[in-house]
Simulated assay, not measured.
Amino acid sequence: MNAEQEVKRAIEHYFETMDIQDLEAMEKLIPETNSTVHIGTDQGEIWKGWQVLRDATKG
Rank of each mutant, 00 (worst) to 15 (best):
E4C: 08
E4R: 09
E4L: 15
E4P: 05
E6R: 13
E6M: 09
E6V: 11
K8M: 03
K8D: 09
R9F: 10
A10I: 05
A10V: 06
A10Q: 12
I11W: 02
I11E: 15
I11N: 10
E12T: 12
E12L: 03
E12F: 03
Y14L: 07
Y14N: 09
F15V: 06
F15M: 08
F15L: 11
F15P: 00
T17Q: 15
M18L: 08
D19C: 03
I20Y: 08
D22M: 08
E24C: 01
A25P: 12
M26F: 04
M26S: 12
M26Y: 14
M26I: 13
K28T: 15
K28N: 14
K28C: 14
K28S: 06
K28W: 13
L29Y: 05
I30K: 07
I30N: 04
I30T: 13
P31L: 04
P31T: 04
P31K: 03
E32N: 11
E32R: 06
E32T: 11
E32Y: 04
T33A: 12
N34E: 14
S35M: 13
S35T: 14
S35D: 15
T36F: 02
T36V: 11
T36K: 03
V37I: 14
V37L: 07
V37G: 02
H38L: 09
H38S: 00
I39S: 01
I39G: 00
I39R: 06
G40A: 03
G40H: 03
G40R: 00
G40N: 01
T41Q: 05
T41D: 01
T41W: 07
T41S: 02
T41G: 07
T41C: 05
D42R: 02
Q43N: 01
G44D: 03
G44T: 07
G44R: 10
E45S: 08
E45K: 06
I46H: 04
I46A: 04
I46S: 08
I46Q: 13
I46W: 02
K48E: 09
G49E: 05
G49M: 01
W50G: 03
W50I: 12
W50L: 02
Q51Y: 06
Q51L: 09
Q51N: 05
V52Y: 06
L53H: 01
R54I: 15
R54G: 11
D55V: 05
A56V: 06
T57P: 00
T57V: 11
K58P: 05
K58W: 11
G59E: 09
